[in-house]
């Protein structure tokens, strides 16, 4: 059982986490025409990095959505960054 870090709850069992997506994609500007190729690239293409990756994860019990940096070969966790912004 691997222990993964949640930025809100701290270290928790891997079964509580859900991998959501790679980071780095920007949704095409839908106020303009978007070509089928651009949509396809946005929807389907993956970097699928071997080695150090940055991914969006969700800690299901507390619903925290955050970025986890990880090594996709060794499965070592390199760090997390919260995506939460404090109220102003």
């Amino acid at each position: 059982m691997q222990v993964l870090p949640c930025p809100f709850c701290g270290p928790r069992s891997e079964g509580e986490f859900h991998f959501a997506a790679e980071t780095g994609k920007t949704r095409p500007d839908t106020t303009r025409d978007v070509s089928a190729e651009k949509w396809a690239a946005y929807l389907f293409d993956q970097t699928n990095e071997k080695g150090v990756t940055r991914e969006i994860w969700i800690h299901l019990p507390c619903a925290e959505v955050f970025v986890m940096s990880r090594d996709s070969v060794t499965m070592d966790v390199l760090g997390t960054e919260t995506l939460r912004k404090l109220p102003t």
Binding site: Q2, E14, K50, T53, S72, V73
Partner: peptide, 13 residues
Amino acid sequence: DRVPSYGQKGNLP
């Protein structure tokens, strides 16, 4: 395993 991986090893859950 629903975690992207190149590790050729599986997780316990």
